[in-house]
Write a protein that binds this DNA or RNA. Structure first.
Lengths: 219, 219
DNA sequence: CACGGAACAATTTGATCATATTCTGCGCGC
DNA sequence: GCGCGCAGAATATGATCAAATTGTTCCGTG
């Protein structure tokens, strides 16, 4: 009896984990605006979860830089200023090419095909002007690359950086459209196919610089 | 009446913040052994706090890499293997010299004197074989440097890295003693005094390599 | 008869919730 | 303009429920 209770019990990951993942996606894919306040009770109502799991998810995201706690006990989606964007750019340029270089020796035909497929979907999203899908596929593309690097620590650092510019990237795309979005992915795929770590690193470096310039340009 | 209640009320920072800081120190300064399980209820008794603040502090530290959640919902102090140490080394070499270079232009006489004082206390700690004090002063030294860099994002990334090797560093010091601990601080201080960003970066790079080699050598 | 292992029970630990308490910010009156 | 409640939101507690680990027992086998 009591089917609904049973169904809820079956849910493998704990609630605070589910809430964390949901909020993480919302931040990454621009479902939350920079500067927007995030209230616990609001999320409790929106997500239909208890306070404790929501609180834990918020602490976790705050620790990762996805959200920001402003001294008085309010939590907001962080806004980026010029200095922070510069810092983010420096950090990304320092780390992401390293990941690409580490990934290069680990590519095989299967993973390469997977990356190529993702990049194709990404191109179609750009062509159709589907910003949400672009953000999603772009993230999948880089996540696959980072997975290949077999580097959990550096991967976590980079994830944190992506969380920080996610909301702002969405805003930029909304303003600029999908015309000149960064896509050094073809160079990257060629480099990976050739197992050329240096070339892969350089392709990623350019992709990062191009993307961050876009954000910087829109203030 | 009820002085103890009054005292507790006076406590400015919220309990979860206090618990977080205490646990963070315990991890950074090796008061917890790698591999040691961390239980919520244990901390509730040890620290005399409620479950909710403890849980939040643990989530935060887990997100920062200071603790590790092993699939089954247990939390442990992470153990480093060879691969993780290599990764940590790469990440530290990629980031910390950048911070030093950014800090170099910002040094003035006062901050330089502060750094020199810290370094002196650090030397005395080494001379006396006081491992706990060494770890503490070494951290203060680098924290002061990172503060000078005016780089909150990269500072957070580096903090996360330090949290990851804190426990293991303590173990190493316990085995090796304080004889040949890394100390490129004299070179670094000279470079900072001369506002030489490149030299400061190089000094930090060598300090990092030396320190991580020590950990790597002890498996 | 001793040993190994699988199932089971008991204890420990984690997850979640309902509720009380405290703090912040805001609007009202002086 | 300034202080003083008042509403609302966050913090913190303890109870309750669920899950996992541990220890134990019992059976089958060599």
């Amino acid at each position: 009896m009591n089917n609904e209770a049973d169904k809820e019990r079956r849910a493998g990951p704990p609630v605070h984990e589910q809430v964390y993942r949901r909020l993480r996606e919302m931040v990454l894919f621009g479902e939350m605006e920079p500067g927007q306040p995030v209230t616990i009770q609001g999320l409790v109502e929106t997500l239909g979860a208890g306070m404790t799991p929501v609180r834990e998810a918020l602490r976790r995201l705050t620790a990762e830089g996805a959200l920001a706690a402003q001294g008085n006990r309010r939590i907001v989606v962080p806004m980026l200023d010029h200095g922070l964007i510069d810092e983010l750019t420096i950090a990304r340029v320092a780390l992401e090419p390293l990941l690409a270089a580490r990934a290069a020796p680990n590519v095989d035909a299967g993973t390469l095909a997977l990356l190529a497929e993702t990049d194709e979907r990404l191109d179609r999203a750009i062509a159709r002007g589907d910003i949400a899908l672009y953000l999603r596929e772009n993230h999948v593309f880089h996540a696959q690359l980072h997975g290949l690097a077999q580097a959990p620590i550096m991967g976590a650092l980079v994830d944190s950086l992506w969380l920080r510019f996610g909301p702002s990237l969405r805003v930029v795309c909304g303003q600029v459209g999908t015309r000149n979005l960064p896509d050094r992915h073809k160079d990257l795929l060629a480099a990976l196919a050739a197992r050329n770590a240096m070339a892969a690193a350089e392709a990623v470096r350019l992709d990062v610089l191009q993307g961050m310039d876009l954000i910087r340009a829109s203030l």
